[in-house]
């Protein structure tokens, strides 16, 4: 196989061993464990009573804005890592754009937190 002798080869081997190991755990469990199915056992767990609905949408969408913020920070950190890897070749005055960018990353966070607090999440 093309993977060669280096790292990716062992990565692939490790991955395959991991998948096989996980499935092997399951196989041993399916062999050793009893299997007595009944309808009541397979009902999902709801602590007995089903409470009335209502606040569920709020619970689900509570911090969705932070997922979007996470996406953006993930992308920005790509640029920052490229800058960081070449840190030794920049003098501080040359990386002024990166420093100002870092500082300007903070206001969106605070605005989002303030909106979240005012909404009440």
């Amino acid at each position: 196989m093309y993977l060669g002798d280096g790292g990716p080869f062992w990565f692939a081997v490790f991955l395959l061993i991991g998948i096989a190991g996980g499935l092997l755990f399951y196989l041993v469990a399916f062999i050793l464990a009893p299997r007595a199915r009944s309808a009541i056992k397979e009902e999902t767990f709801e602590s007995g009573q089903i409470p009335p609905g209502g606040k569920r949408v709020r619970l689900v969408m509570q911090y969705f804005a932070f997922l979007l913020l996470f996406l953006i920070f993930d992308v920005v950190s790509m640029f920052l890592y490229a800058w960081g890897a070449s840190y030794y070749s920049f003098a501080p005055s040359q990386s002024i754009y990166a420093i100002v960018l870092l500082i300007l990353l903070l206001p969106p966070i605070y605005i989002t937190l303030k909106v979240a607090k005012s909404v009440g999440v």
């Binding site: 755990f25 399951y26 041993v28 469990a29 399916f30 050793l32 464990a33 009893p34 299997r35 007595a36 199915r37 309808a39 056992k41 397979e42 009902e43 999902t44």
Partner: peptide, 11 residues
């Protein structure tokens, strides 16, 4: 203990 417990798949 965990290996010998029944695996229940919810409905």
């Amino acid at each position: 203990k965990l290996i010998t417990k029944e695996i229940i798949i919810p409905k």
